[in-house]
Deep mutational scan, measured.
Amino acid sequence: NMECRVCGDKASGFHYGVHACEGCKGFFRRTIRMKLEYEKCERSCKIQKKNRNKCQYCRFQKCLALGMSHNAIRF
């Protein structure tokens, strides 16, 4: 039983190089595919399941810091 490295929810698998839940997987995919840019935040918000949708900037930064990558495809 793995935990999502981004928000701590139950991970659904290994997505983009990191154990992640469906919510964070979809969030990362949409951000990359649609080339979304979020308003910069300096607060280093703590991303948890209950508040993961509050600060998209910090959520995406955490995805990147954990090594999530669009190129991380498993063979």
Rank of each mutant, 00 (worst) to 15 (best):
residue 52 R to G: 12
residue 62 K to R: 08
residue 69 S to R: 08
residue 32 I to E: 04
residue 11 A to L: 06
residue 31 T to F: 05
residue 68 M to T: 02
residue 42 E to W: 06
residue 42 E to M: 11
residue 22 E to F: 06
residue 45 C to T: 00
residue 19 H to W: 12
residue 5 R to E: 14
residue 56 Q to P: 12
residue 27 F to K: 02
residue 65 A to S: 12
residue 45 C to M: 04
residue 26 G to S: 12
residue 44 S to K: 14
residue 58 C to K: 01
residue 22 E to R: 06
residue 51 N to P: 06
residue 53 N to G: 11
residue 2 M to R: 05
residue 64 L to K: 08
residue 36 L to R: 07
residue 61 Q to F: 00
residue 33 R to P: 00
residue 1 N to P: 04
residue 17 G to D: 09
residue 65 A to G: 08
residue 1 N to G: 07
residue 37 E to Q: 12
residue 72 A to Q: 12
residue 53 N to F: 10
residue 34 M to E: 14
residue 7 C to N: 05
residue 66 L to Y: 05
residue 35 K to L: 04
residue 14 F to G: 06
residue 32 I to L: 10
residue 13 G to R: 05
residue 74 R to V: 12
residue 69 S to H: 11
residue 70 H to W: 08
residue 40 K to C: 07
residue 41 C to M: 00
residue 25 K to L: 14
residue 70 H to A: 13
residue 34 M to A: 09
residue 23 G to P: 12
residue 75 F to Y: 13
residue 41 C to D: 04
residue 54 K to H: 11
residue 71 N to Q: 13
residue 28 F to S: 03
residue 8 G to R: 05
residue 14 F to E: 13
residue 41 C to I: 00
residue 24 C to M: 03
residue 44 S to Y: 13
residue 15 H to I: 08
residue 44 S to T: 11
residue 7 C to V: 01
residue 5 R to K: 15
residue 44 S to N: 14
residue 70 H to T: 15
residue 1 N to F: 13
residue 72 A to F: 07
residue 23 G to D: 15
residue 13 G to D: 09
residue 58 C to Y: 05
residue 31 T to N: 00
residue 28 F to Y: 08
residue 51 N to G: 09
residue 6 V to A: 03
residue 41 C to R: 02
residue 71 N to A: 11
residue 19 H to Y: 13
residue 71 N to D: 14
residue 59 R to C: 04
residue 70 H to M: 14
residue 59 R to M: 12
residue 22 E to N: 07
residue 44 S to Q: 14
residue 74 R to W: 10
residue 74 R to G: 15
residue 35 K to R: 11
residue 68 M to F: 04
residue 17 G to N: 07
residue 55 C to N: 00
residue 58 C to D: 02
residue 34 M to H: 13
residue 19 H to S: 13
residue 29 R to C: 12
residue 62 K to I: 07
residue 4 C to P: 00
residue 69 S to A: 12
residue 35 K to N: 13
residue 59 R to G: 01
residue 74 R to D: 14
residue 3 E to S: 11
residue 64 L to Y: 04
residue 73 I to A: 15
residue 2 M to Q: 05
residue 67 G to N: 05
residue 66 L to Q: 13
residue 15 H to L: 07
residue 47 I to P: 08
residue 10 K to R: 12
residue 62 K to L: 06
residue 53 N to R: 08
residue 22 E to K: 06
residue 27 F to L: 02
residue 4 C to V: 00
residue 43 R to V: 08
residue 14 F to K: 12
residue 64 L to W: 02
residue 61 Q to H: 07
residue 5 R to Q: 14
residue 29 R to W: 15
residue 51 N to A: 08
residue 7 C to H: 07
residue 23 G to W: 14
residue 17 G to A: 04
residue 39 E to W: 04
residue 19 H to F: 15
residue 10 K to G: 08
residue 2 M to K: 07
residue 32 I to F: 08
residue 64 L to N: 00
residue 50 K to Q: 14
residue 25 K to A: 14
residue 3 E to V: 08
residue 28 F to N: 03
residue 7 C to E: 03
residue 63 C to F: 05
residue 73 I to K: 11
residue 75 F to G: 15
residue 27 F to P: 01
residue 36 L to G: 07
residue 74 R to F: 13
residue 65 A to W: 07
residue 55 C to T: 05
residue 6 V to W: 00
residue 60 F to W: 12
residue 23 G to V: 06
residue 17 G to C: 01
residue 34 M to P: 03
residue 22 E to H: 05
residue 33 R to C: 14
residue 65 A to C: 06
residue 18 V to P: 04
residue 65 A to D: 14
residue 4 C to F: 03
residue 59 R to H: 12
residue 60 F to H: 04
residue 2 M to V: 08
residue 31 T to L: 00
residue 9 D to N: 09
residue 27 F to W: 02
residue 4 C to K: 02
residue 24 C to Y: 02
residue 54 K to M: 13
residue 75 F to S: 15
residue 55 C to L: 00
residue 26 G to L: 14
residue 49 K to H: 15
residue 32 I to W: 06
residue 17 G to W: 00
residue 14 F to H: 10
residue 70 H to N: 12
residue 14 F to S: 11
residue 36 L to S: 07
residue 73 I to V: 15
residue 36 L to W: 07
residue 19 H to L: 13
residue 46 K to H: 13
residue 24 C to D: 06
residue 72 A to L: 09
residue 5 R to Y: 10
residue 31 T to K: 00
residue 22 E to A: 07
residue 13 G to I: 06
residue 8 G to M: 02
residue 47 I to M: 09
residue 17 G to P: 04
residue 26 G to T: 13
residue 73 I to W: 09
residue 66 L to M: 14
residue 37 E to N: 13
residue 8 G to S: 05
residue 62 K to Y: 05
residue 3 E to M: 10
residue 46 K to Y: 11
residue 66 L to T: 14
residue 35 K to T: 06
residue 20 A to D: 00
residue 21 C to Y: 03
residue 64 L to H: 06
residue 16 Y to F: 10
residue 36 L to A: 09
residue 9 D to C: 06
residue 16 Y to I: 06
residue 28 F to T: 00
residue 9 D to T: 06
residue 23 G to I: 07
residue 35 K to Y: 04
residue 44 S to P: 09
residue 12 S to P: 05
residue 44 S to R: 11
residue 63 C to K: 01
residue 28 F to K: 02
residue 64 L to R: 05
residue 10 K to Q: 14
residue 60 F to R: 01
residue 32 I to K: 02
residue 34 M to L: 12
residue 63 C to Y: 07
residue 35 K to E: 13
residue 66 L to S: 13
residue 69 S to L: 11
residue 30 R to V: 08
residue 24 C to T: 02
residue 55 C to Y: 03
residue 24 C to F: 05
residue 25 K to F: 09
residue 23 G to Y: 13
residue 64 L to M: 08
residue 52 R to H: 06
residue 28 F to L: 01
residue 19 H to E: 15
residue 64 L to Q: 08
residue 13 G to Q: 06
residue 69 S to M: 13
residue 11 A to G: 07
residue 34 M to N: 15
residue 18 V to G: 04
residue 13 G to A: 07
residue 53 N to L: 07
residue 60 F to V: 03
residue 30 R to F: 07
residue 29 R to L: 15
residue 25 K to S: 14
residue 6 V to P: 00
residue 24 C to K: 03
residue 8 G to H: 10
residue 32 I to Q: 05
residue 60 F to Q: 00
residue 53 N to V: 08
residue 14 F to R: 09
residue 31 T to Y: 04
residue 16 Y to M: 08
residue 42 E to G: 09
residue 1 N to Y: 07
residue 46 K to M: 13
residue 75 F to L: 15
residue 46 K to T: 13
residue 3 E to T: 09
residue 34 M to I: 01
residue 12 S to K: 07
residue 2 M to Y: 09
residue 60 F to C: 01
residue 26 G to M: 10
residue 11 A to C: 05
residue 36 L to C: 09
residue 41 C to L: 00
residue 25 K to D: 11
residue 16 Y to N: 11
residue 61 Q to I: 07
residue 7 C to D: 00
residue 63 C to R: 04
residue 54 K to S: 10
residue 26 G to F: 09
residue 15 H to Q: 08
residue 56 Q to W: 06
residue 15 H to K: 03
residue 26 G to Q: 12
residue 2 M to W: 04
